[in-house]
Structure formats: structure tokens, C-alpha cells
Design a protein around this nucleic acid. Sequence first.
RNA 1: GCCCCGAUGGCGGAAUUGGUAGACGCACUGGACUCAAAAUCCAGCGCCGCAAGGCGUGCCAGUUCGACCCUGGCUCGGGGCACCA
Length: 873
Amino acid sequence: MQEKYDPQEVERAVQAQWEKTGASRVVEDAGKPKYYCLSMFPYPSGKLHMGHVRNYTIGDVLARFYSMRGFNVLQPMGWDAFGMPAENAAIQNGVPPAKWTYANIDAMKAQLKRLGFAIDWEREFATCEPDYYRWEQWLFTRLFERGIVYKRLGTVNWDPVDQTVLANEQVIDGCGWRSGAPVEKREIPMYYMKITAYADELLDDLKKLDGWPEQVRLMQKNWIGKSFGCEVGFPYDAASVGAEGVLKVFTTRPDTLMGATYVAVAAEHPLATAAAADDSALREFIEECKRGGVAEADVATAEKKGMPTGLYVLHPLNGEKLPIWVANYVLMAYGEGAVMAVPAHDERDFAFAEKYGIEIRTVIASPTGAYTEATAPWAPAYAEHGVCVNSGKYDGLCFDDACDAIAADLAARGLGAKRAQFRLRDWGISRQRYWGTPIPIVHCDACGDVPVPDEQLPVVLPENVEVTGSGSPLARMPEFYECACPQCGRPARRETDTMDTFVESSWYFLRYCCPDNDTAMVDDRVTYWCKGGIDQYVGGIEHAILHLLYSRFWTKLMRDAGLFGDFRLSEPFAQLLTQGMVVAPTFYRKAPEGKTEWFNPSDIELECDARGRPVAAKLVADAQPVQIGGIEKMSKSRNNGVDPQALIDEYGADTARLFVMFASPPDQSLEWSDAGVEGAYRFLKRLWRMVHEHVSEPHVPAYSGGALTPELKEFRYLLHQTIGKVADDYARRKQFNTAIAAVMELLNACAKIGDGGETARAVRQEALEAAVRMLYPIVPHICETLLAELCPKGAAVRPSFPDVDTDALARDEIELVLQVDGKLRGHLRVPASADKAAIEEAALLSEAAQRYLNGKPPRKLIVVPGRLVNVVP
RNA sequence: GCCCCGAUGGCGGAAUUGGUAGACGCACUGGACUCAAAAUCCAGCGCCGCAAGGCGUGCCAGUUCGACCCUGGCUCGGGGCACCA
């Protein structure tokens, strides 16, 4: 055995061995329990960043642990290859998106291999390959025929200078990121998927996902946002509107209906358009509402503005004329694009009414009497449930009774009924971009929208295109869009929009089971690997809502398309581990034209105050100052990703893996710092040295019984306690930093065992073997090597996880904490078998208790078995 | 603005079910080895105090024999908000 730990050489040799034996290759095996361990696949941005290292190490640790426990483990990897950065690279450097993407995949795959993950690379694919997306197109046509996919208008960000649709990320302070021009909202036809038809199931099934973090389930529940209330119809005031009709709104507070003093509609609402026809000021206001992007955060934080239309509706219960306002806070996409406003009992309506001098009418009193009278000027709106006042026949009714009574009266007039409402909206999947899956639809003047028939699939995305950043390249390629109608054969136009990349990431995990199937989307192998759900999914918490919700939805769509046969998979992910983000500081400079340039932390020199807080920063290259931004998730757009390659080059993959796992528990966000890498490396060197010293003497079999000194007995207690703790950390808690710490403690204790004779060496053999096996999932290269040295005969055998020897855990005496009045005052050694009375007696006799009791009996005596005794004087 | 999460020494973090706050590691300090340095090993290391002891888990209140942990109210930081992935 080499005396010195040389990670580069160890890792090269071990990886070559794994490669040779196909150690990570896996096939279906009915004789073994399966464990499908999935990590979220990366976008091929070019280089791995620390978030990837963390994510894939967590996955690999679990995969290897379950493998050691005898499971048939599948750990696949692929590439979420479509998306905007490839187009941006094309615009900047003129490289075709496909070429750029495949080059990035090669680079990142090499990095993943260097890290030694037990990935079955035979199953790898990229979502930009026609063999993959053809099945997505195929299912799309089925869903289109069933009406799950439909077309309607949707609102997008429009850059009037670049004449192009912008992603929310490309809108900065209301302006296009390249042109700097103010962005406008524009309505265009788009394809939607009816996720709202599955809203109830998506909500109900959350209850079954007990392997998911509560936090994620809660976020999804709130996102789906099922609320109960009432639909209310406000008949048009025919004299002002000039037409018959009913304005529909939804409210969760029908009990406040008698306090409604106006209604508000979105700028795009037909009533707003009608009123603006002969009102230039209103037209101008509606134009103003169209300025700015569509992102909800921007809309919700914008100043609330409105304008009266001069039109009226009639209150459905008392016939009173209520003005119709256009308001920028009402969104056409939600519900009916109109709301009823009750300023006295809704904070937003209150602020709006105060600003524009609209009547505020109190109709709810606090049940405790705190808000009883309609007295102006009002304090902030009383938005709690209460009792109806100033509401005629409804006076005195509580929330539930008022809702029932008002809903019944509305129903009697045909102007409303109780119903549920979802916040969830249908999923718009059309993108006016090049680098995505072509939407398989042909537009024919005679036949309308015709899905591409199976025999013409896939609709292949042409790869050699010119990307300019203005408009969609496909829309400039007649050779792509000119086609014959599949139905009537006449000249027709192929759809040039592509699909949202979330579609590809909604089912890739199923395709890993059967990537080579060229006659079906999925097959029986999915049943083997996905029965009961994918056993473990690991990925960033930033995907808690969209990606995970879309994947759940898409799985249900595939189920309902009959693709899973009798197996009928409904929920794809049984266990979910949401990794906390690796965050890093951001640095930028703003150019005069408003463009922002972001600088990588590695190119920055920081100046800190006495307490170590950064106060100023400058770019090393030009020594000029840069602005310090927030500490954000590592991303390409903020250029704050830290490249792990330098770490791997200097210390090796095992140190990188150990350090990242030791730094914090997986679900916690981690501010990147490489302080402490040395410590991880030092630990591996120490482990190597301890094994080297041990094996340089003749081999002894691991301890298997016989008399022990008290010291060795105590050490074996620690050893087996540690094995149990570490196994629990891997399997249940998924907290690897404490598993590592426990093994460190064990080895610290191991180093302190007196050299002793044969027995001590046997115990040390047992401990070192166990420690190396416990660490194997985290640092597999060094452990593979050390295990071969420790058990020369078993070198070829796949390593197993050590078992707990329960005999070693038996104790004669235990130590209890002695508290007086809840404060630590000493310890108590008692026989392990001592009962409550014996413990109480020992506690009262203790020096500490005597000192504080002054001979008086205690007021209380609390014994927590196995832990402590508290004497309350 | 709305939804979710977090805050513990100089730093990363531990305390698993309300029961010893600070495990493990980093940094630092002292010592050993060395011509010297590196590496390694040993010891110390929350704050105040000579000590006894007191204080201490973002802030303010509360529940409890006992609170980092539970409840209410804040502050700050992070994530998501439907076209970043």
C-alpha cells in the first residue's frame, strides 16, 4: 500500500476499474428490490457549478448507500437541452444552438465522470434529440384531439423595437434587455394545456405525498389555490352600457355584497374596450395599463391606478347603480377579469376607494364589537369575518349564514351561485422561439388547425439556422413552415412556435427507463422502475412549484392516455429531497444605456470592514469599483456560479464531495465559501494514514467475540452506536454532515485506543472496516481502495453497509443529567436498570440537590427516563 | 404585493420527540517535532469574571418544572410568482 494519499492516482485507478466492470450499469432484475434514484437533470450551460456538484453528490450518496444495502439501483443522467441560453449564445457568438449545446454536454459530462458518480450512462439522452421529443409531439397530438390542448389568446411581453416576444427574465425595469425599449403587453394566439381540469386531483393527491417536504406540499396547495365563494352577476345598466348583459365576478366574501360600491374590470375587458370607443382619456389609460411586462410580481407591486368608464351595473340584490372602473390591478387572466369592490372590508379596495373618493360602506361588524359603526374617516379596512350590519335583511347574520342567504337570493334571481375557484391557470406552452420542440400542428385555410399525423412525426427542428434576436427564426424559413395539409393536401403553414421547455422536463424521468424504444413512448420497464413512484428525487427547492407540478400533471395525462396499462402511475415521485440553493454574492456595473453587466465573484476583490462585512468591491482586471448586489442562487444570468473544477484539480473528487456534503445539511441553503476544504482533505489523509499504519502489520480478522478491556468495550459501544446513527442519517434523515461528523468522532476515538495486543488490533480492524464502509457513499474512490487493503480477499465483492452488533450496545450503567430548577447542576451515574423511585432517591441524595434544597422537600421531582432528573425546590 | 423557508461562537454547522446549547470541522492561540519551513501530533478556544458564579440560540411578549425547538407580534435574509431553468 502507498504510504501517501494521492487522490488523483487513486481516483484514476478506481474509475478505470469501475469503467471496466460496468459497475454502474443496471438492468431490470425481478429478484432484487429496486431503487430508482433520480436527480434533476442539468441545463447544459457549459460548466458544472457548485449547485450541480451538491445535487449530484446527494443523489450519488443515496444511490450508493442503497446499492450497499442490496438494492438494484438505477441512477440515470441526461440533459435538459432546449432553452434560451443557447439562442443567446448564438446571437452573441454566431454559434448554432445545437452545436453550442452538444459541446457543453461533452464538457459537463466529462466533469460529471471526473466526480465519480455511479450513473448508468447507457441511458443518457438530451431532450433536443428528435428521438426524445417525437414522443412529446405524439402525445401532444392525442391531447389536442381530446381537447386537453386548446388554442386561445394569451398575454406576452412585446419588445416594439426588436419586434420580438420577451421572457420575463428579459424584461428589466419594464424595458427590453437588448433594446432598452419600454415593453408592452400584447395578446397573441397560443396553445394551452388544461391543467385546471386536473386541479382537484393535483390538490387531493398532495395528501398522499408523505415522502415530500411539508413545505413543498404547502406551496403547491397555495399555488393551486382552491377557494370557496360565490359567483355574482351584476346586470348591465342598459341605459349607460347600451346593451343587455351581466358582468360576472367571483368573490370569497359574498357576505360583504351589500357593501359593494363599485366594480372593476381589467384593461383588456370587453366593457373597457367598449367604453373607450368614444373616450380618449380612457383609451389613453388603457394604453398605459398595457405598458410594462406581464410578470405577476411587477403587476402586484405597481401603484394601483384606475379610471371610471362612465358605465354602470346594477347591484344584483338592491338594484343600486354601481360604477364600472378600469383598474390596473385586475388581471384578465384570473377568473372573469372583473371584481366586485367592497372598500370597507378589503385592503386593496379600501386604498383604491380612498384614492379616488369612492364611497366606503361598512357592512361587517367585528363579533367582539371592535368595529361596530360606519364612522369616517376609516381606519384600515376590517377584512376579518364578522356579523352583517347595514345589510337590510341580512343584518345579524354571521359569515356562514350570510353567505348561504345571499347565495340563495342570488340563485333565485339567476344571478349567482356558490362555487369553488382555483388560482391555478391553464398552462400556456407556446413559445415564439427557435430552440425548442416544434409544436406539431399545421394550419390549413380549409381544415383549420390540424395535428401532424403519427407517420409524419417527428417534426424535426432544423439545426442550421440564423438566430438574430428579432422574431422567430423558424418563421423566416419557408422550407420549414411551407407544407401540405395532412387532411386535404392543399398548401398549408406549419406552426412555427415551439413548446415551453418545462414540457420536456415533465417526463424525462420515465424515458430513462426505456431510452432505446423507437416504437413507443414508454414500455414495461417503466413499470419495473417506477412502481410505487420514483424512490428518490433530488433537486433544487427553486423547482418546488412549477417543474414538480407540471411533472405530476404530465404523469396523470400519460396515465389517462393509457400509457401505463394497469399500472396507472399517478404520482411520479415517492420521496422528494429539495436541495437548498448554493448562493453566492453578485457584482455588477450598470452601463449608461441601462444595461447591466454581471461579474463573477472569482474576478472580484473585496474590501471588508472590521467585522468582516464587505463594504466595497472592485474588478481585479481593471481595478475599478463594481456594485455589490444581493447573495443569490448561482446562475448564468447573474454570473455568480463557482466552478468546481479548480477544487477537483487540486484536491480530487473525493475531497470535493466530502467538503460539499460536510458543509451543511442538503435541504439548507449554502452560501459558498471554500474555507474548510483543507479540513476535508486533511481528514481523508488521516483516514488513509490510519489504514496504512494498521495494514502494515499482519492481517487480523475483525473482532467477532471474546473478552474485552473496559476501554475496548466502551469503544465498541461507540462504534456500533455510530453505525446505527450513520445508517439512520443516510436512510431516514438524509443529513450527511452529521453522518460524516459521527465517523470523524469514531476515528478520533479509534486513534486513542492503546496499541494493546491482538484483541485491540481486531477491534481496530472492525472499526476501520466499518468506518470505510460508512464513508463509502460519500467518498467512494478512497474507500474502494482502502477496503481492498483492509480485506484483501473480499476486494472483488461489491461493498456492503456494516451491521449493528446489538450486544455491543448493552450497558450496565448510564449517566443522567441532574437539574435543579431546570438548570444543569451535575450528573448522576445510575444502574441502567434503575427505576423511577431509585433515580429520585439518588437525585435527592446528590450533593447538588442538598445544596439547593436546604433540607426542605422538593416542590416537584421530574424524571425523564434515560435522560435527566429535575429537582424543583 | 402574495405564497414558502431561514436566522445558534470569529466562520460552516450540531442538539433527531420540549430535556446537558455550541458535537464535528474551519480559523485562531500556545506547545512538540525540525537547522528551518511545510506536513503531522498535543493542548486551548461562546461572552463577562481571578474565582465562585452570571449571561447567552435575530428582536419583543407568552405557555412550561424546563424553550434553539411550541404560540402571538416584529426585523432582516433567501426562494417562488406561471416565458430563467
